[in-house]
Amino acid sequence: MSNVVTRQAYIQSLPKYITLCERNYLRALKVLPEEVVGEKRKIVLANATYEVHIDDCAKYTTDISIKQTSTISDYLPELDIAVRLYHDAKVAEVVHHDFHQRIKPSYGYPNPSMHHKDEKYQLNAFLGDWLMACLESGRVPLNWDVNNGMV
């Protein structure tokens, strides 16, 4: 008798994904600068400096980019992700990662780009971990002008 092995396609758990995106939304709101296009906030986390930049604001969405501005190691690439916050649904999700094309919900495996089956979920889980690290142990340099510009 021959055994035929069939591969099942990857099916993403939508409730699990939506819960992750809702948590990312709440965390992202805490690290955002004022919601004005062009505003940015620097965050120091361990030996790296990151910049959260507001790229675009609309009635129901805000596009932000998170960029690493200092190198940790010559062997690690710098972080550069684009995140969209949907204010009506109260979710945030990664849209681009390191200038790649838009991320699909799932990929066949193996694939030429070597994406994981659940690439989109993993990038959003990474965003959640990064936001938690920022909230727990990140520092925001303050530029207080206590003299109101007078010396």
Rank of each mutant, 00 (worst) to 15 (best):
residue 2 S to D: 10
residue 2 S to I: 03
residue 3 N to H: 06
residue 3 N to K: 11
residue 3 N to P: 01
residue 5 V to T: 06
residue 5 V to I: 15
residue 6 T to M: 05
residue 6 T to D: 05
residue 8 Q to W: 06
residue 9 A to Y: 00
residue 11 I to L: 09
residue 12 Q to E: 01
residue 13 S to Q: 04
residue 13 S to F: 04
residue 13 S to V: 00
residue 15 P to S: 01
residue 16 K to R: 04
residue 18 I to R: 11
residue 18 I to F: 03
residue 19 T to R: 09
residue 20 L to K: 07
residue 20 L to N: 06
residue 24 N to E: 00
residue 24 N to K: 08
residue 25 Y to G: 12
residue 26 L to F: 15
residue 27 R to Q: 09
residue 28 A to L: 10
residue 29 L to C: 14
residue 29 L to T: 01
residue 29 L to P: 09
residue 29 L to Y: 03
residue 31 V to Y: 14
residue 32 L to M: 10
residue 33 P to R: 07
residue 34 E to S: 14
residue 35 E to M: 11
residue 35 E to R: 11
residue 38 G to S: 05
residue 39 E to G: 11
residue 40 K to T: 04
residue 40 K to Y: 15
residue 41 R to L: 05
residue 42 K to H: 11
residue 43 I to W: 12
residue 43 I to Y: 14
residue 46 A to Q: 05
residue 46 A to G: 12
residue 49 T to I: 09
residue 49 T to G: 10
residue 50 Y to M: 08
residue 51 E to I: 13
residue 53 H to E: 04
residue 55 D to K: 09
residue 55 D to V: 14
residue 56 D to W: 02
residue 57 C to S: 06
residue 59 K to A: 05
residue 59 K to R: 08
residue 61 T to R: 03
residue 62 T to Q: 04
residue 63 D to W: 03
residue 65 S to N: 10
residue 66 I to W: 13
residue 68 Q to M: 06
residue 68 Q to P: 05
residue 68 Q to H: 07
residue 69 T to P: 10
residue 70 S to H: 15
residue 71 T to W: 14
residue 72 I to N: 13
residue 74 D to F: 09
residue 75 Y to H: 15
residue 75 Y to C: 14
residue 76 L to V: 14
residue 76 L to H: 10
residue 76 L to S: 14
residue 76 L to A: 11
residue 77 P to C: 04
residue 77 P to E: 06
residue 78 E to F: 14
residue 78 E to L: 15
residue 79 L to P: 15
residue 80 D to L: 11
residue 82 A to S: 15
residue 85 L to A: 01
residue 88 D to C: 07
residue 88 D to R: 10
residue 89 A to Y: 08
residue 89 A to E: 07
residue 92 A to L: 07
residue 94 V to D: 02
residue 94 V to H: 08
residue 98 D to M: 10
residue 99 F to T: 02
residue 101 Q to F: 12
residue 103 I to H: 00
residue 103 I to N: 01
residue 104 K to R: 06
residue 109 Y to R: 05
residue 110 P to R: 08
residue 112 P to V: 00
residue 116 H to E: 04
residue 120 K to S: 11
residue 120 K to N: 02
residue 120 K to P: 04
residue 122 Q to M: 12
residue 123 L to V: 00
residue 123 L to C: 01
residue 124 N to H: 11
residue 125 A to F: 09
residue 125 A to W: 03
residue 126 F to E: 05
residue 127 L to V: 01
residue 128 G to V: 00
residue 128 G to C: 07
residue 128 G to M: 03
residue 129 D to I: 02
residue 131 L to R: 06
residue 132 M to E: 07
residue 133 A to C: 00
residue 134 C to S: 08
residue 134 C to F: 15
residue 139 R to W: 13
residue 140 V to G: 12
residue 140 V to M: 10
residue 140 V to I: 12
residue 141 P to I: 09
residue 145 D to W: 13
residue 145 D to Q: 08
residue 147 N to L: 03
residue 148 N to Y: 10
residue 148 N to V: 01
residue 148 N to C: 02
residue 149 G to I: 01
residue 149 G to E: 09
residue 150 M to N: 13
